[in-house]
Design a binder for these strands. Structure first.
Length: 423
RNA sequence: GGUGAAGUGACAGAGUGGCCGAAUGUACCAGUCUUGAAAACUGGCGUAGGGAAACCUACCGGGGGUUCGAAUCCCUCCUUCACCGCCA
């Protein structure tokens, strides 16, 4: 969440920035500022009373020792009075803080200055494009037909086992999936990212830390009997490694990568581009995460974009990079670049990666800080990116690389992982 | 899952109702000494909130309770360790 101090000191800038999200935050920000004033006044009062009570309690100890029982009992009565007054004030303070935090949790991150205004994904700004869009032969098929014919992905059996959106990958399809995971992990390793295998279930505190809770509760699968959530992305468990951590400045940057399945309820997106591998409830992804010095985060964002660019390039997929507009930007992000690959038979662009800088929005919730020498701890910046999400990569590979004879040609970089060069 | 023990600052480790935000040691930082280093000595050394400041408040695994007063007593949850049971 945003830092209260930042809101107070940059009120106009915050309101202006949020306008790019089509959010008129004027009232909201003013409410926060007003509540903050109320809050401080209330804290001052409560603490004053508390100090007085503490002081008297100490004195009572002395009085008893001296045997002045009568005086002590009088003081006890007085303290009891103070306590009941204090209790009433504390309840008031709790109310104020509850409201205050609620408002704070529901303010999204302020977009970076370079974020274009806009309503939807149609307003995203294309900043880069590379690769040749393949000219498919007559009779080329969409991937959902191909995977069925070649028995690479079995959607029906997935429906039987679990439900829609939980496919079974089979044979060479499974092998290709595993090959991509290994390729992405090896590349991340080369990029200096230390691999982790995190838990796939997270607790509430972790969900709050990275911003999935309370805002996106409905997008996660919730195991209610244990109050745990299935991860929607490895970002959550990996970034939460650093929750409540104070790093030394020289430990930055922290770079981690990890492969995990991701689980998303996709509530509200039924019937929208859901064919085949385009949108699933469970999918595989390799994620890269960095914790960096605030001065470095935008350089690092570019590095991460370059890393992803290199992955797609090596897979020989035509791609473009979009700078997300305010309307499409995620709740917690300050700046996001999306990668889309072209899936030639569907004749459409598919999002395969999202690379974001969260600045201090997550670290403020996570209490993730770094310390320079003996100075006070400062909030670090967090970033993450998909590198990459698998199913749509697979869809594009299958569609773009089909030849007239019905072969799917596997990109060369994957051969050593697949053990075959075509399907 | 059962039984028992335990969770205190970066770490180790005291503290069983007021003198405890917390002894002591180690580590760390600054200084003295030294040609330099080590050793020794002196001082400093948690986080957060409030306040212009002095200073005040909160935090001893989490939450709740008893009490004028809780690290200390009670309840509950979590975690760790040991043993038993079950099991990839």
């Amino acid at each position: 969440m945003l830092q209260v101090k930042h809101i107070l000191e940059n009120k106009e800038q915050v309101i202006e920035g949020l306008k790019k999200r089509n959010l008129d935050a004027e009232t909201l920000v003013q409410q926060i500022i007003d509540l903050d004033i109320e809050r401080r006044a209330s804290i001052a009062k409560v603490e004053e009373l508390r100090a007085e009570g503490n002081k008297m309690s100490k004195e009572i100890g002395g009085l008893f020792k001296e045997g002045k029982v009568e005086k002590a009992n009088a003081a006890k009565a007085k303290v009891q009075e103070i306590k009941s007054e204090q209790k009433a004030l504390e309840e008031g303070l709790n109310d104020i803080e509850g409201k205050f935090n609620d408002l704070l949790y529901h303010i999204p991150n302020v977009p970076h200055v370079t974020v274009p205004a806009g309503i939807s994904d149609e307003d995203n700004e294309e900043v880069y494009k590379e690769g040749i869009i393949p000219n498919l032969h007559e009779g080329a098929k969409p991937h959902w037909d191909i995977v069925k014919e070649k028995d690479l992905v079995d959607f029906e059996t997935g429906v039987k086992i679990t439900g829609a959106g939980f496919p079974v990958y089979k044979g060479k399809g499974a092998r290709l999936q595993r090959a991509l995971i290994n390729f992405f992990l090896d590349e991340a390793d080369k990029g200096g990212y230390a691999e982790v295998i995190p838990p796939l279930l997270i607790n509430e505190a972790s969900g709050i830390g990275t911003g999935q809770l309370p805002d996106k509760e409905g997008q996660m699968y919730h195991a209610t009997s244990d109050d745990l959530y299935l991860i929607p992305t490895a970002e959550v468990p990996i970034t939460n490694i650093y929750r409540d951590v104070i790093l030394n400045e020289d430990e930055l940057p922290k770079k981690n990568c990890g492969y995990t399945p991701c689980f998303r309820r996709e509530a509200g997106s039924y019937g929208k581009d859901v064919r085949g591998l385009n949108r699933l409830h469970q999918f595989d992804k390799v994620e890269v995460v960095q914790v960096v010095h605030p001065d470095e985060s935008y350089n690092v964002l570019n590095d991460m974009v370059d890393h992803v660019k290199e992955l797609v390039r090596q897979l020989r997929l035509p791609f473009r990079i979009l700078r997300l507009c305010g309307g499409d930007l995620g709740f917690t992000a300050a700046l996001t670049f999306d990668f889309e690959v072209y899936s030639a038979a569907q004749e459409r662009w598919l999002e395969v990666s999202s690379v974001s800088n969260f600045e201090t929005y997550q670290s403020n919730r996570l209490k993730l800080r770094y310390r320079k020498g003996q100075d006070k701890p400062q909030l670090a910046h967090t970033l993450n990116g998909s590198a990459l999400a698998l199913p749509r990569i697979m869809a594009a590979l299958i569609e773009n690389n089909q030849d007239e004879k019905g072969n799917i040609l596997i990109p060369e970089v994957l051969h050593k992982y697949t053990g075959f060069d075509r399907i």
